[in-house]
């Protein structure tokens, strides 16, 4: 069965690619008025991401990935929070002075 195993780096890249493709396909096919095609591509992408992980030759996500996920989650919410704290009051002000609907 060893010929079926995939290097952990490759597994991580495949999962990331599948996630990005799935999300983009969902958005693009919705815009192109082909929503069912979008859902089909999304299901295939997410399904293959789930199927490829057990095929990893070793641990697909180790402690280093955990640290990256930890830091990324922290910085994402910090950036998103700061951006929201600036954007939404600004929109409210713009709405108040009639510059934004």
């Amino acid at each position: 069965m060893s010929h079926l195993l995939v290097a952990p780096t490759r597994v991580r890249r495949l999962i990331a690619t599948a996630a990005i493709l799935g999300g983009l396909a969902l958005a693009l096919f919705t815009i192109l008025k082909l929503p069912l095609v979008g859902v089909g591509v999304y299901v295939v992408a997410v399904g293959s991401a789930a199927l490829v992980q057990p095929l990893a030759d070793g641990t697909a996500f180790d402690e280093r990935d955990e640290e990256i996920a930890h830091a990324a989650a922290f910085w994402t919410l910090r950036v998103f929070g700061l951006a929201s704290a600036i954007t939404f009051p600004a929109l409210t002000v713009a709405w108040g002075v009639g510059a934004f609907e």
Binding site: G23, I68, A71, W75, T76, F80
Partner: peptide, 16 residues
Amino acid sequence: VAVLYAIYGIVSVGHR
């Protein structure tokens, strides 16, 4: 939501 996970993806890749 798309922007939120775009930030997450960019930060993850940056750290990596």
